[in-house]
Design a binder for these strands. Structure first.
Lengths: 154, 154
DNA sequence: CCAACCTAGATGATGTGTCAACTATTCCGG
DNA sequence: CCGGAATAGTTGACACATCATCTAGGTTGG
């Protein structure tokens, strides 16, 4: 018995194709705009936001990787590039000599504070200003459901 | 008068954060799975699907770029890599000596036909099997709205 | 105490995406 | 026709992501 593929039906196909298109376009637009306005990439932005979320402005590397859901090598490479640009710095960890902290620099803080308003404005303009409250909630619900399934799938 | 940033309210923030997380996780999962099962990247898959959509199994490069909404240089680089792996080939264009066709090879066809069922299954498992019909339609509606705004934003 | 093992993180190779610059051809106004 | 502008596509440089591997420092059972 060869298992028969359950292809997407028309409704699903429509949703999937437009989701993919939206996702790609939205990502590209927001990224380009952020980059042009502030010189930050989307990835830089995420790292900086995660850092400003801490009252210390510093975190252990793995903890940051966890928070961002990034692989540690991705983060390590990315931090090296950001460090070269002066946005973050690495600090030794006294507790565990293997470990390291990443800390926000003054320049990093300035960069995120300068970039955030225009970025939020872009998100609003491209997404939220076009959606009604029901759609916003529906989106949250869908995303949470899918995230749950992803986690369940291990 | 300094314009005041209209930050996201709580409902919007919740939707935005979960959307971003879903998007990143879903992309990563599907990509990894596709790669592991078939050796194709997501991008390869998109190119191959676009090619099989033509009855000729070949397209002009820019037309393909348009269909995929990719930048032409991205496509050009990607085609070079795919060509090196034997998935597509380039053909001269008699009408316009500047132009070129990209054509599906026998190997390319085999690759996409082998990869598609498992990919659809993964999409189903991670996304559609968890959503009800209302959510599927809501997703399509949201994506279409946002796409419209993106196009409107030029 | 120390050998086997585990963990934090860095690194190198390779594939991918973006931007700017380039080449070759076609188009178009005079 | 012919010279300048537009068009099709490629290329090179660089930022980014992933994988496998490596190093150095911790942890634990005997």
């Amino acid at each position: 018995m060869v298992p028969v593929t359950r292809w997407l039906d028309e409704r699903e196909q429509r949703a999937w194709r437009s989701y993919l298109a939206m996702q790609a376009q939205l990502q590209a637009r927001l990224h380009r705009r952020l980059q042009a306005d502030s010189g930050l990439s989307y990835a830089d932005f995420d790292v900086l936001v995660a850092l400003t979320d801490r009252e210390d402005d510093r975190v252990r590397v793995l903890e940051l990787a966890e928070a961002l859901q990034w692989e540690k090598s991705r983060l390590s490479h990315h931090l090296s590039r950001m460090q070269k640009r002066g946005l973050v710095e690495r600090q030794e960890c006294a507790d565990d000599a293997r470990g390291a902290f990443v800390a926000l620099t003054r320049e990093g803080r300035r960069a995120i504070e300068d970039a955030a308003p225009a970025h939020v404005e872009a998100v609003r303009e491209l997404m939220f200003d076009g959606l009604d409250a029901g759609q916003v909630d529906a989106l949250a619900g869908i995303a949470e459901t899918v995230l749950g399934r992803i986690r369940a799938a291990g």
